[in-house]
Design a protein around this nucleic acid. Structure first.
Lengths: 344, 344
DNA sequence: ATAATTAACTATAACGTTATAGCTAACAAA
DNA sequence: TTTGTTAGCTATAACGTTATAGTTAATTAT
């Protein structure tokens, strides 16, 4: 085991001061050329690397970004992380991951740990439980400590920080319009409970499209999937409700707020021998792997996770490097796009 | 913006020495009860938190684990990370993520950054390109620096460190046997190129099962999917080859080394109006979301990513905390299990 | 010849901790 | 009275850096 050599050790070996070594390695003209070269050669030969922790302490910068997300095993979030990681690395930042598991308590804990620790800033998407509780003190406190925060996808207006969101409402409206243009008038909406901001916005878009086309919204056609820890229960709830719905009334299209819901819907329809898209047409949010490999493949609204991740990282790094002022905040809106596949 | 208070500031405020403050907060009996309580109260009131970077410098420990994986947007790897994150957090460690993108160069870079930086140990799965190149100097150098490394899933025997793998060969053999027991004798194998250790082992298991049942292996029934950056090309290669194969000979079963391959196979079969599992039965590795939501759903071999992640983190943390000796290495083998669904 | 300048280096403090050793006053033991 | 002990605190070094302010000795200007 070869321990990393330090400036002090180099200084001792070569009988010069630590300052001389430090300056030589920075190629400072304060040090004579000969000494400088000798020290650089020695450092190289011994594979000297500055101790980043010491530098972090000195500079009060860790060059590390913390990311708090509700889930990792999730197509959209993993895309976003991937893209944050990519952009950050390219700009000399490391990425620490923390998972809230949709739990308020864990999110607060994560935030605390990150804020006391080795990070310069935080990118996060808020846990469902936190949205439900409406308690955002942890986020505000972090911001008060001078740690920049960027929120993405699930955001809340009462927090003053940079944000990256998707035009959820508009996208849902457009998708609904596409279904209506295809002469579908009994469109069932599979959405989440109201406190989830994105689900809510998508529901609004759906309703607005109906209104624009003078279609009376029907509450029996809106299924709000109860949020259960342990998604198995959640899914069987969805399947039961959906089955009841299609048996008790006419349904000729389904709009799902994510691909898990749409994928489950596909199963139910298949079980009931309903052909997609002939009898029922489907469009869903989240352009993930289910949409591509299901059969029929699903028409989806892509939220462009790569772009969201990149923009979030960019906004944060701009704050960290002082490129943008620390008390002006931007909200970037990413435009969704509809990817047509077999289900519609 | 409220900057975090330091020991020094507390000391100045209360007219005591830094030592006194430090010891009081550690509840040291060297300090009188009254002073101690006063200091603790003051610290609490000002929300004192020790500066973890200073502690890291002092203790030469960062309480952070680095994870290098080939991909994040990948069901198996995201499960493993999730589980590493969970176990690590529970044991007081943070997790830094680095993605190699299957590239040797990026893996080396990641390793360098992590090794110079804020981590105590590394958990990794080796990039395909690295496996192909057979160049593992970066991993060895990191180990030589005294940074413990744990390899999972894609490992290599020439590196001395802890490892967590799956009984790939045995699992492939058993899955093949299941197909044979179902009277399928023309089993097509969809595998990766030979240098990917796990693909190779799975191929071996397949061949062994054939041999045990006196079935002559047929090289036309083995498709080695060419690895392309940009998985679109990779997939169309697979689809073309598979289509050729099923048209030119009898095939009554398919074994895929991952669910993307199997999912693509499903598409090809559907396109050719071949019914699954009646005409062709399918089993694949990777129990991901495609397997569950495809139709028919895929019978898969689960590699138990949660367990792999947890074991990897446990092995590493045991090394970091000195629970296990730093020069004895373990290889843990996780048993796969076959999950039967509709495709077989 | 004396002062001013410069080249080439060194000492020191600081980032925020903690562990070790040291100091002082009060009290107890001999 | 002198020595020893203890309680309660402080000073210092160290972790590995870098920036600032010295310190020399040699060179140049006047």
């Amino acid at each position: 085991m070869i321990r990393r050599i330090t400036l002090k050790e180099i200084a001792n070996e070569l009988n010069v001061s630590i300052s001389t070594v430090s300056k030589s390695l920075k190629d400072s003209h304060e040090i004579g050329l000969e000494t400088r070269e000798k020290i650089k050669a020695f450092a190289k030969a011994h594979n000297y690397r500055p101790n980043n922790i010491a530098l972090s302490l000195k500079n009060r910068k860790t060059k590390t970004i913390g990311v708090i997300i509700p889930e990792i095993v999730h197509h959209f979030f993993s895309i976003v992380i991937n893209s944050i990681e990519k952009f950050s690395t390219e700009n000399g930042y490391n990425v620490i991951i923390a998972v809230s598991n949709e739990s308020f308590e864990k999110e607060v804990l994560n935030m605390e740990t990150l804020a006391n620790g080795h990070i310069d800033g935080i990118i996060m998407s808020i846990a469902k439980e936190t949205l439900k509780k409406q308690d955002f003190h942890h986020i505000k406190e972090t911001i008060d400590l001078g740690i920049p925060v960027v929120l993405f996808d699930r955001v809340i207006s009462e927090i003053k920080c940079d944000k990256v969101i998707v035009n959820d409402k508009q996208a849902a409206k457009e998708a609904t319009q596409v279904l209506i243009d295809d002469k579908r008038e009994n469109i069932l909406l599979l959405t989440s409970e109201d406190y989830v901001s994105v689900g809510n916005l998508r529901t609004e878009g759906y309703l607005e499209a109906l209104k624009d086309n003078d279609i009376e919204p029907n509450s029996n056609l809106i299924i709000k999937v109860k949020d259960k820890k342990g998604s198995q229960l959640e899914m069987s709830y969805l399947e039961d409700e959906l089955e009841k719905a299609i048996k008790s009334q006419k349904v000729d299209a389904i709009l799902g707020v994510n691909e898990i819901y749409a994928g489950s819907a596909l199963k139910v329809l298949k079980k009931n021998n309903i052909s997609v898209p002939k009898e029922i047409s489907i469009i869903s949010f989240t352009d993930g792997v289910i949409s591509r490999y299901s059969s029929p493949s699903l028409s989806t609204i892509s939220q462009h996770g790569e772009i969201m991740g990149e923009r979030s990282a960019e906004l944060l790094i701009n704050k960290l490097t002082g490129k943008t002022s620390s008390n002006e905040f931007k909200t970037e809106i990413i435009n969704c796009s509809l990817i047509k596949r077999e289900s519609s």
